[in-house]
Amino acid sequence: MPAHTITILDTNEQYSCNESQHLLAGMVQLGKKGIPVGCRGGGCGVCKVQITSGSYQSKKMSRARVTRDEEENDTVLACRVFPQSDIQLKVLGHLNKVVKAV
């Protein structure tokens, strides 16, 4: 299975991800960090990234979290993106500290 190099431009972190893995699975498996990890099912939106270079295939992601326009402009959820080449990306999502008082 071909493996590709994923570069998180925000931190310059790089890791290897093969074509059958989504971008978060590759990252987590190697103990790397940089993209927030949430539901890994395209539902919660915390792993939103902007793909700045590279090609990929993607699976369905929640319209409540990624608009059609965003998806067409390579703003996607990392957990639904399977690399077809080396990829560079910027992190857009974040984990809200929802319980602010804590």
Binding site: V37, C39, G43, C44, K97, V99
Partner: peptide, 11 residues
């Protein structure tokens, strides 16, 4: 210990 994903992820 609070876990960020548990506290911050909803659908």
């Amino acid at each position: 210990t609070l876990v960020d994903s548990f506290m911050g992820v909803t659908s």
